[in-house]
Design a protein around this nucleic acid. Sequence first.
DNA 1: GATTGAAGTAATCGAATGATTACAACCACG
DNA 2: CGTGGTTGTAATCATTCGATTACTTCAATC
Lengths: 205, 205
Amino acid sequence: MTPRSERIPADERREQILAAATTVFGELGYAGATTDRVARAAGISQPYVVRLFGTKEQLFIETLRRTLARLLAAFRAALAEADAGADAGGDGDGEAREARLGEAYLELVEDRGTLLTLLHGFMMGSDPVIGPVARDGFLQVFRMLRDEAGFTPDQIHRFLADGMLINTLLASGVGLAAKRDRDAAELMDCTFGAHVAEVLERASA
Amino acid sequence: MTPRSERIPADERREQILAAATTVFGELGYAGATTDRVARAAGISQPYVVRLFGTKEQLFIETLRRTLARLLAAFRAALAEADAGADAGGDGDGEAREARLGEAYLELVEDRGTLLTLLHGFMMGSDPVIGPVARDGFLQVFRMLRDEAGFTPDQIHRFLADGMLINTLLASGVGLAAKRDRDAAELMDCTFGAHVAEVLERASA
DNA sequence: GATTGAAGTAATCGAATGATTACAACCACG
DNA sequence: CGTGGTTGTAATCATTCGATTACTTCAATC
């Protein structure tokens, strides 16, 4: 159907490359990923990736920025949903928002690439170029939780801490190991409580 | 005084190299680190590193194993202290253990290398060789919290989640940025509450 | 004092990788 | 047509890096 090797406007091609780069950077990290792997994942040649983004570093920065922007957008959409539901159902307070945001996060990190690209960014805090981008993204999330979601400091703390634990469990593969390993399953139980079945199902996909 | 380029037994040299590798792998990640950087950090030549460990991958695995072992040892020491204190003071329950373990963790991750080597290991869950080592280490921590510390599932959940958030805040540099950035400082406040001053002081060193 | 084995390095090799260059194919517009 | 800009690639270059080889130095032991 779709004839491969079609000529595509550069804007669209950039988006394809960024999507592919999210997967590749997520799996291999910034240093471990190669522009050639990204190129092949996007179905084009390696020099073209370099020409469109100038530098591997620049490609990573744009990939990270895009991932952070999608994270924020998903959170804002979840907040809008929660507020719409509150108008109708009358529940009112931050409880619904917290639940919706949590669900939105779980949906996002179903994509291993998204999850891991964010984490790799956060781990490069000492890089003079990438570090500030990652920090800024983290702080944007914080401000959104504080100003738009109206979370209390304790809510913010718990939300972020749970998110980071989810990240680590999924990234390290403990989530997948829970199928075979009793202790891993119990650990997932501690973390996710009643939601564990849902999480495990998502993590498998 | 200490004449550089002394001949040293291999066992001792291995330990020196592992200590240096913890710093280098932590800062640059597995893929980003080079055997040459490790060698120079340990004050020896690059081929010798390769000869003592066979492979960069093997070096990383041993570095990760050592870091995980030190983490567990520090936790066990903290538990012993807490129990000794409980015998004397009569406080009794898990409260003291939780506090001691938290303190032990903060002391450990003062060393950026330790912190980041662990994180890099956890993020390589999909690597067929390194992934299992990292997962096994994580599960060892879980079992220790459950069986030796006697934590409830909820205590385990909170302890691990807080640990992962601390990791991320320190790795991304938000902790350091708190000196200049108002929002970063507020975020650190949400996370650490009363302990924030202590953490910031440690993070600077 | 010759020998043996351990500690350690200089030199170098082959593969991988980011980047550059030069060129090809295609489309729109005059 | 033809010409100029856009999309894209093949070939290749310089560097880096993990690993290997061959060598040196030193201490102990017989």
